[in-house]
Design a protein around this nucleic acid. Structure first.
Lengths: 198, 198
DNA sequence: CCGAGTTTCAACCGCTTGGTTGATTAAGTC
DNA sequence: GACTTAATCAACCAAGCGGTTGAAACTCGG
């Protein structure tokens, strides 16, 4: 399986792990760009630079590849769940994941009926964090923490979920780091108003 | 559906307008539920209760049907653009369009690369309205009105764009009128905090 | 350097897709 | 009531889909 040995490894001709990684990366890009249904396995293989049969060989087909991605996403989400950082930093991090292939994949899977990448633990932790921020006076206490989290997450992912609308409103391409940074700053200002401090 | 005609209309055998309407309605439901790529013309025809060839006959195919829907949506959006209503009312209206087939269609088209339903005039008017609300002290003036509008629209459509996430956070089905009402109330509270009034 | 096992690929397959065809039925006209 | 036009349908089709096959290319222990 994994003979990740030192010598002659740099330009190995056959390298299954590298092939797997290439396929996962390519699949994230394709699925993220067009959604599951519109994605062609041929395109994934072409982007990865390998034969399309390898999708079946390594992942058991298109769906297996998709599910592997959906689960691997959990890790990405969790590492962003900074425990006690200021809220605007957390939001900024969230805004920036908007630009990644995994972020786009997450948006697609939220709309579709298919298996949602259930990372309930992560979400529960985030709700709890909201409640703490409310207790600390950082956020208004009369709001339901769950709904508040939902609204903030949705607002943060606007460049992704409302991509065309965002472009029409601002005249800029929302899929750029510059846009994300600027938008995150505005969100920081917004939550500052929420906390009562002008 | 609506047989609003006087003579012998109740059970007409051939009725092209009715057929067109049935197809449009069915297409909105199917496209809204699964997105363009995953929708099968056979399913649309079956839901409408007509032969699938009529899609080509009346709309020139699947894509023509989709585009017809995308343009007809503009009207729906515009009528919601209430000129001088309180902001929370506007937001509540927006939250509730989340439940409609057209709303779901809008969400899908925002993610996809395909022709965005450009209703620029509507959006420009909304931005201008934001600016007025800022001048009136209803909203903080140090925020960019475009970004503010974007954030509020994204937050309002959270039950739609972050459907699974919303369900996991709240434990309820976000696609119900009850949820929309409750969520709209929370948003109203939120914007009240934004305006500075506790 | 050989043989066993792994990794890769070109070619192919059955199925589903969106769309078309040609015929059938109803409505309007004189 | 024959003729024309519009509306509807069942059957069919080429193209594209995801997936499989069987063998070639490679790696590595002996």
């Amino acid at each position: 399986m994994d003979q990740r040995r030192s010598p002659s490894a740099s330009e190995r001709k056959r390298d299954p792990e590298r092939t797997r990684a290439l396929l996962l990366e390519a699949a994230a890009a394709e699925f993220g760009a067009k959604g599951y249904a519109a994605t062609r396995t041929t395109d994934i293989a072409a982007r990865a630079g390998v034969n399309k049969q390898l999708i079946s060989y390594y992942f058991g087909g298109k769906e297996g590849l998709y599910k592997e991605l959906a689960t691997s996403w959990h890790g990405t989400a969790a590492e962003m769940a900074s425990p006690e950082q200021p809220l605007d930093t957390v939001l900024a991090g969230f805004v920036h994941t908007t630009l990644t292939d995994h972020g786009r994949l997450w948006a697609w899977s939220n709309l579709a009926d298919d298996s949602p990448p259930t990372d309930e633990a992560f979400l529960r932790a985030q709700v709890e964090q909201m409640r703490e921020r409310q207790n600390a006076g950082e956020l208004p206490a009369d709001l339901d923490p769950g709904f508040l989290l939902l609204a903030l997450m949705a607002a943060a992912s606007a460049p992704l979920t409302l991509r065309h609308t965002a472009r029409q409103i601002t005249g800029e391409d929302p899929a750029t780091p510059e846009f994300a940074t600027k938008y995150a700053e505005q969100l920081a200002l917004l939550v500052r108003h929420l906390s009562g401090r002008t």
